[in-house]
Design a protein around this nucleic acid. Sequence first.
DNA 1: GCGACTTTGTGCGCGTATTCACAAAGGCTT
DNA 2: AAGCCTTTGTGAATACGCGCACAAAGTCGC
Lengths: 226, 226
Amino acid sequence: MARLPVYLRALHTLQERGVATVSSEELAAAAGVNSAKLRKDLSHLGSYGTRGVGYEVEYLVYQISRELGLTQDWVVAIIGVGNLGRALAGYGGFASRGFRVAGLLDADESIVGQEIAGMTVENIGRLEELIAERGVSIAVIATPAAAAQGVCDRVVAAGVTSVLNFAPVVLSVPDGVDVRKVDLSIELQILAFHEQRKAGGPGDYDALATGEAPPGTAHYVEAVDL
Amino acid sequence: MARLPVYLRALHTLQERGVATVSSEELAAAAGVNSAKLRKDLSHLGSYGTRGVGYEVEYLVYQISRELGLTQDWVVAIIGVGNLGRALAGYGGFASRGFRVAGLLDADESIVGQEIAGMTVENIGRLEELIAERGVSIAVIATPAAAAQGVCDRVVAAGVTSVLNFAPVVLSVPDGVDVRKVDLSIELQILAFHEQRKAGGPGDYDALATGEAPPGTAHYVEAVDL
DNA sequence: GCGACTTTGTGCGCGTATTCACAAAGGCTT
DNA sequence: AAGCCTTTGTGAATACGCGCACAAAGTCGC
């Protein structure tokens, strides 16, 4: 479940405050979800709370960490050390959650050799070698769009089956390989879409339905001005 | 729809290649979705293609851009100029899609005044002032977790109704305000979860069902070792 | 020790998203 | 001009996720 990490974070916050026990209602509020959904998620996970009391925070933290595989360390390589790659290399949230960055790679000779966040950037030519040597199991792709698919093919060929992609392209991978994508400009575009609807833009179907424009698709056709 | 930006990107790629016309099948493949879904999305949008031919790329680009509100410029402020804020400030994908970064703000006096990506970092004390003066409509929060909710409250009070949150907390906002969240470590945790399942970890329900462990919840209970 | 109260775990119904499959529609070839 | 072929647009079936609401279960107070 994609919500487990959110629960885990909320639980960590509670733990820091010294809270020992939490009800589904409280935890759901902290995680921003419905309490029934949370209980269902936790029950699918097999762990249980105590009726009339709630869940023991420490127990739940352990259970979820274990379910997510955070009881072991994951070795990550960051490929592409531009703006974003640099930020990722310096991002503290990785190390604190069991993700160890074991390599920074780039194709640009002027970047290779630089020291970033305590690591030396290495040449991407050694990609396969480094993946094997260091047991990299997750590849983070932060290259320009044009290079992403090629890099992806290489890491997959080298045996990596989990890829986090920041490049603005749809990566194609064989079955059995998981790709997650983070696209910053898409997030902004979605916000812009909603913002526009609030302001009654072209996406404002309600305005359409209430007669501010002729019914049917003519509304759109008329608006085109190429 | 959250898929429109993905279609738009695929269309831009096609446009660069000089493709004038595209079928739903081709575009769906490029965007990584089912072709029926793509056609339904596009039809909800009102635009149409030509049966027997497909969609005109240029026309579709215009239509989707317009639907997403990308025909106008959106003014963005980035709050929190740490690792991530810096990367965002220098990220080219914003400007090229109609998002204009109009301000970098931070609370740290040692950062205020620095020049990043051609902009001078300003003191967060002037937040409300700058939002009003420059017509900021989207706030990007890249502060530490502890500061995020406070910053969010301030930008919302200042009239911003769209927030992109990179801080690892669940922001609470009044109705009518849209928040989108990007959490890098959550993405990695989800990958780790799947990776572990491939390897037959605790989340491996198939192994459970095939008898590698006793049925029922006992499997989990026995494994606990606090 | 018992009763009232709290909270979990889950069966059920509902609305939405997704996919299949096909009829309508337009172009292209002959 | 007519028929064939391609591709859209969409009706219908399905799958999925979500949340309500309630019974079972366990605790706490008296």
